[in-house]
Design a protein around this nucleic acid. Structure first.
Lengths: 228, 228
DNA sequence: CAAGATTGTTACAATTCGGCGACAATCACC
DNA sequence: GGTGATTGTCGCCGAATTGTAACAATCTTG
């Protein structure tokens, strides 16, 4: 299991050290800085999976860091949890508006922050943490970009791969064609609903192994689901 | 499709966009507006399952929107969560008096609002929150779109599925044929009353397991009910 | 018990919906 | 530029689903 990468931006050395210790203890890979500009550099050179950002930091201000992170393509979708002093209500508002995902008010317990981070990580699709997903006899390795069923390597086109990954992230769950379009093709694509059918068929054909049953369940008038 | 429908009334574009994104990510179907009158129109044309209403909006004020929503038959019972500034205690009181179900004080984290919404959903309609319903030895999982009785998988057509779900949301309660038509087929469908009988018959046949008694009770000259 | 009302059951035609093959357009890679 | 893989769309077909009518069964009431 490759550890999730955290970037901690905090200028109180004591707090920073404490958090670093706690998070590394939990299995995260943590990098720290107390400087805003530094944070941007670190984030750029190795995109973290989550950023913990103190609002009151030296150098570029928290809000500015946040904005710049959102602007850069690589870090645009990296979740940000900000740490604010209780009084800074304005900061909180601006923070949320600027694209922070969540905030934690100082003083907080490390435990609380850990919980928030864990929650965000869970939400941000486990695959991004680099873990392989297994559903039934299917196995998808996002790092190697490889899929196999019952040990047999499966060859998939890009779209089928994303489709399968999307299914495997929520095994058993039924998705409507519209949900699949949103999740696999992206919200802004305008593609025929029925096109989904075709890719479902291609995916089915690709992952079929004789003797093995069809893993994709058709739910008439509702959508499709991957059997869990 | 069984995604819960949200109506978001918020005039800060940044916040609105953030929330829309987060809620859609969670699987809700979201429509947004920043205008009070617009909200009323949207709510009227497709009744949402829950409304998130900013108290300080353009056009008709939040409190007035709330009042009008409560007045209209379709939206009278739709739960409303209002967003208020910390200072406006009066608004909160008036809001709750006017019929809002809950309020969240700005600034808030998206996570907090998500939790509130989920809580209300669970209270109002568990199915929309994705929770399985169990009635007697019947179990319906809305996420997987699966039904089983005493552990045995049950195969249902779309209409029978909706019919069963409708019954299971109010176990023991008797519904007239007209109520069933409204609830299962939709208000605007013009279908023979007696057609309901046929689908009741089909549902009965589908969920019958030998040795098990009929779960659907006929109430002569009144309608049908699912035994609780 | 008879008559009327109400419900159960079945058969059937119409419709809807998903599977599938084909095809042109686009893309990627040499 | 060429070549093969990938992708989005159509249209047809068969199967599942659905609404209705017709008839049988059952209940209610006098």
């Amino acid at each position: 299991m490759s550890a999730a990468k955290l970037l901690l931006v905090e200028d109180d050395p004591a707090l920073s050290e404490l958090l670093e210790f706690r998070f590394e203890n939990e299995g995260y890979s943590v990098r720290c800085t107390k400087d805003g500009d530094d944070a941007l550099v670190l984030a750029a050179e190795d995109t973290p999976d989550l950023i913990i950002l103190d609002w009151m930091i030296e150098g570029t201000s928290g809000i500015e860091v946040c904005r710049q992170l959102r602007r850069a393509k690589e870090t645009a979708h990296v979740p940000i949890i900000m740490l604010t002093a209780r009084e800074d209500e304005d900061d909180r508002i601006r923070g949320l508006n600027t694209g922070a995902d969540d905030y934690v008010t100082k003083p907080f317990s490390p435990r609380e922050l850990l919980a928030r981070v864990a929650a965000v990580m869970r939400r941000i699709r486990p695959v991004l943490a680099g873990e392989a997903i297994e559903v039934g006899d299917m196995r998808l390795d996002p790092v190697a970009h490889k899929v196999e069923r019952a040990g047999t390597p499966i060859k998939l086109g890009p779209t089928e791969y994303r489709l399968l990954q999307f299914f495997m992230e929520s095994p058993g769950r039924v998705f409507s064609r519209n949900q699949l379009l949103d999740g696999v093709w992206g919200t802004e694509s305008d593609i025929e609903l029925r096109t989904v059918d075709v890719h479902i068929r291609r995916l089915r054909k690709a992952i079929e192994l004789d003797g093995k049953k069809d893993l994709i369940r058709t739910v008439r008038s509702a959508g499709y689901a991957l059997e869990g």
